[in-house]
């Protein structure tokens, strides 16, 4: 089967992959680049757990054509924190019990990262709007909203290594 090359920056690293022509970005990241942090919940753009940042914008990797990210900067949850050191946003999720099964968490974190970079002091409504495309079946959202607000108070975006885009 003929594969198509695609080159982009993944979490600051130059990345080149050979992919199926119509492969989606989620598949390319997970099985191509081996970054398993974005999850597949629906493959139809409704659940948000595959959310990644493309040039700083939150995007749904499952409905993004992989070859369309040629030349862009892609960021996933793997970019948050470093080693044992967690980003304030991650720490806020831990402290606020903002994850139960954890499956929506990577998408929530990326949607929140995009928000906090754009708007370091969001209102509660702005947080709710920012994660409105991310479904969670366990928590009822409130702890997640609280955690994002807490991360904003404690300098959430600062620890997320902004600036690739």
């Amino acid at each position: 089967m003929v594969k198509t090359p695609v080159r982009f920056t993944l979490n600051g690293q130059e990345t080149g992959l050979f992919i199926d022509e119509a492969a989606n970005l989620l598949e390319a990241l997970r099985r191509g680049a081996g970054d398993l942090t974005p999850k597949q919940g629906c493959a139809q753009g409704t659940c948000g757990t595959c959310t990644v940042l493309i040039d700083g914008e939150p995007r749904l990797s499952c409905i993004t054509l992989a070859q369309s990210v040629e030349g862009t900067h892609v960021e996933t949850t793997a970019s948050l924190g470093r080693g044992e050191m967690l980003a304030p946003l991650q720490q806020a999720f831990i402290d606020g019990f903002a994850a139960q099964c954890g499956f929506c968490t990577p998408g929530m974190l990326m949607a929140a990262t995009a928000l906090l970079r754009r708007n370091p002091n969001p209102s509660r409504d702005e947080v709710i709007e920012a994660i409105s495309g991310n479904l969670c079946r366990c928590t009822g959202y409130e702890p997640i909203v609280d955690a994002i607000l807490e991360a904003a108070r404690s300098g959430g975006a600062a620890g997320t290594r902004a600036g690739h885009g």
Binding site: L36, T76, A78, F93, I94, F97, Q100, C101, G102, L109
Partner: peptide, 11 residues
């Protein structure tokens, strides 16, 4: 939660 760090790091 014992699994919380895995959850927030996507691992």
């Amino acid at each position: 939660r014992q699994d919380i760090v895995g959850h927030v790091t996507g691992r």
